[in-house]
């Protein structure tokens, strides 16, 4: 499939601070590409440059053959954007919001009304169409926020962490919507710091950290970078010192990485069985009671830990 997006050495500086450091990647038409990284990694800044909101300090990107720096208006006709924060008029109804935003995307008349009906159906809010957005739950607002981005049937949809701060049911509905859109032929650039979402949705994943794209490929290609390593997740007590335990566990032979996050310690190792006994012993020696242990196959969390030495949720 041809590339709908080609990013070349995209850089964004704020004074001395470099938010995005020469990011390059392509997205093929019809795929879901996830940009995975912790908060502050540069995901939103990258999307803001690609959606023509911010001007890159250097580098460029072509979307549908149009340069984001030289022909931003043409780019805006190709893309749809679902911003991380809700961007709606709360004193307008769901329908009025969709009508207004549709007009901003050059829709009008019967085509607009018909498309608004379709989108309301798609986001499951047909029966709430005449209610003001301010009366909606967080999940319903998120769905309207997504609906706005779909109105003009964009070829490439940017979704910037669309599931942040919502209930599991709404999150599930949004992930299903993303899959449906992709099945209908839409290409998506999806940013998230939830590894599970990237794993579930993506054809390919780019891992970004401190403004750099540190890994890129399919999930299989990425997990191969950490070999056959497994991840042990130790759940410990609230009053126990997870940081100190992580430092101790790193000394065990066969442990490749150990990282504390809240009341958990993530351990990357070749074989969980080989280190499990030593891990429990070390914890006991420190007087820390292990409440439960999860053993996970190689995943993107392990990849991130392997590449950065930090957990994704840091």
């Amino acid at each position: 499939m041809p590339n709908i997006l080609e990013v070349q050495n995209l850089v964004k500086n704020y004074g001395d601070f470099q938010a995005v450091k020469g990011v390059s990647f392509n997205i093929e038409e019809g795929e879901i590409f996830s940009l995975l990284g912790p908060n502050g990694a540069g995901k939103t800044t990258t999307i803001s440059m690609l959606s023509t909101l911010y001007t890159p300090t250097s580098g460029d990107a072509a979307i549908g053959g149009h340069s984001v720096t030289k022909d931003p208006m043409a780019v805006r006709g190709v893309i749809g954007v679902v911003p991380q924060d809700l961007a709606l008029y709360e004193d307008l109804t769901a329908r009025e919001n969709l009508i207004f935003w549709g007009q901003m995307y050059n829709l009008s008349g019967k085509a607009l009304n018909s498309r608004v009906d379709e989108v309301l159906e798609q986001i499951g809010l047909t029966d709430k169409a005449k209610n003001r957005v301010k009366t909606f739950s967080g999940g319903m607002k998120r769905r309207v926020n997504i609906g706005v981005g779909l109105l003009h049937k964009p070829r490439l949809l940017f979704m910037d962490e669309p599931t942040v701060g919502i209930d599991p049911q709404s999150r599930r509905a949004i992930l299903d919507t993303v899959k449906d859109l992709n099945k209908q032929g839409m290409t998506l650039l999806y940013t998230t710091h939830y590894m599970e979402e990237a794993e579930e949705l993506s054809n390919r994943v780019g891992i970004i950290d401190h403004g750099e794209l540190i890994a890129l490929g399919t999930q299989k290609e990425l997990t191969q970078q950490v070999g056959q390593a497994e991840t042990l997740i130790l759940h410990i007590g609230e009053n126990d010192d997870s940081e100190a335990l992580a430092v101790t566990l790193k000394t065990i032979q066969g442990v490749q990485q150990a990282e504390a996050v809240d009341h958990e310690v993530s351990i990357v190792c070749a074989e969980a069985e080989d280190v499990l006994a030593a891990v429990v012993t070390k914890a006991n020696d420190r007087g820390i009671k292990i409440r439960s242990i999860d053993i996970r196959e190689p995943n993107l969390e392990a990849v991130f830990l392997h590449l950065t030495g930090r957990a994704l949720r840091d």
Binding site: L53, R76, A87
Partner: peptide, 12 residues
């Protein structure tokens, strides 16, 4: 509230 940036990334 984010609606201005959203307007700025529309063909407006």
């Amino acid at each position: 509230q984010g609606t201005l940036p959203r307007l700025l990334v529309s063909p407006t």
